[in-house]
Simulated assay, not measured.
Amino acid sequence: MSWTLYQSVLWAHIFLAIIWVGGLLFIGWGVFPAVKTLVVREQRQTLAVILKHSHHFFTLAGAGVIVTGTALGTVLGPVQSWEALWHTTYGNLWFAALLIGIMTLFWGTFVGYRQAIKILSTEHLWTTAKNGYSRPLNHSLFALALLESVEGLGFVILLTLMIML
Rank of each mutant, 00 (worst) to 15 (best):
M1N: 07
M1H: 12
S2H: 07
L5Q: 02
Y6G: 00
Y6D: 02
Y6T: 06
Q7T: 12
L10Y: 12
L10R: 11
A12N: 00
A12S: 10
I14N: 03
I18G: 00
V21E: 10
G22Y: 11
G22C: 12
L24F: 01
L25P: 07
L25N: 14
F26T: 13
G30F: 02
V31G: 00
P33H: 09
P33M: 01
K36M: 14
T37D: 14
T37L: 14
V39K: 07
V40E: 05
R41A: 14
E42K: 12
E42T: 04
Q43F: 01
Q43P: 00
Q43D: 02
Q45N: 10
L47S: 14
L47D: 09
A48P: 00
A48Q: 12
L51S: 15
L51Y: 15
H53M: 08
S54N: 13
H55S: 13
T59V: 13
T59S: 14
L60T: 09
G62W: 10
A63S: 07
V67E: 07
T68E: 02
G69L: 09
A71F: 15
L72H: 08
L72W: 12
G73D: 05
G73S: 08
G73F: 04
T74Q: 08
V75E: 08
L76K: 09
Q80R: 14
E83M: 06
E83R: 13
L85R: 15
W86M: 11
T88L: 04
T88W: 02
Y90W: 04
Y90A: 07
W94S: 11
F95I: 11
A96H: 03
A96V: 05
L98F: 15
L99I: 15
L99S: 06
L99K: 12
I100Q: 07
I102C: 00
M103R: 10
M103D: 01
T104I: 09
V111F: 04
Y113T: 04
Y113A: 03
Y113N: 11
R114Y: 04
R114S: 04
A116K: 10
I117R: 11
K118Y: 05
I119G: 12
I119L: 13
L120I: 01
T122P: 01
E123N: 09
L125G: 06
W126A: 00
T127I: 04
T127C: 00
A129M: 05
K130R: 06
K130T: 15
N131H: 02
G132R: 05
G132S: 10
Y133S: 09
R135A: 09
P136G: 02
P136H: 12
L137H: 06
N138F: 07
S140C: 02
S140G: 05
L144G: 03
L146C: 10
L146W: 09
L146M: 08
L147V: 11
S149D: 15
S149L: 05
S149K: 05
S149T: 11
E151V: 13
E151Q: 08
G152N: 14
L153A: 10
G154H: 01
V156E: 09
V156Y: 08
L158M: 11
L158T: 03
L158F: 09
L159C: 04
T160A: 15
L161F: 07
L161M: 03
L161Q: 06
I163S: 08
I163C: 01
M164L: 14
L165Y: 03
L165R: 08
